[in-house]
Amino acid sequence: MITHHLNDKLLMAYAAGTLPEAFNLVVATHISLCDTCRARLGAFEAVGGAVLERNIGAVPMAADALSATLARIKAETAPPAAASRPAAPRDAVLPAPLRDYVGGGVDQVRWRNVGGGVRQAILPTSRHASARLLYIPAGVAVPDHGHGGLELTLVLQGAFADEHDRFARGDIEIADETVEHTPIAEAGADCICLAATDAPLRFKGLMPRLAQPFLRI
């Protein structure tokens, strides 16, 4: 049961297509797990449909536009009713959008140790924001950090809790500069999260500070 959802702001920006790639990946992954937000996204896209059709006017096409378009359609070799692409093999932890970035399931992730038993894998996205997978052994604290910008953390396996709340598979934590917290992975299954941020993390405390160069963030 997912209890922490995307907010309107993120859904609208994702519907409009204006988020940095790393945030798009988190939103797409959350929606892959959350029917509620999938339905809400449909509503935000419907607003886009209304803006397109009714709110911004029309600009006449060139005189030969229709015939040119029909000629292109005729010339194209692809069958009109192209089938949707075959689904990639399923994975118990990584939904489809993440599998595309990892190049396979969770066993394909190339983890790097970052100290304290915590591992991470940075995912290739645009430089406007960064995305990484985090592996936090059960019972271990994620290094204490504040946030310089927006940070999204989506749980894929296990659960973590901080001073405020508990987050399990599918739950997304949306944190900005006002949030300072020390999430701890719950006992039981090790915790795997997808985290994205548009600002470098500010770590407090000696060990994490030493580890920061290796975190490459």
Binding site: G17, L19, P20, N24, L25, A28
Partner: peptide
């Protein structure tokens, strides 16, 4: 709208937008 949005992202070389 969703088709036009995706075309715009390519056209303006905006950030990639993975689908759910």
């Amino acid at each position: 709208f969703t088709i036009a949005r995706n075309r715009r992202i390519d056209m303006l070389r905006r950030d990639r937008r993975p689908e759910p």
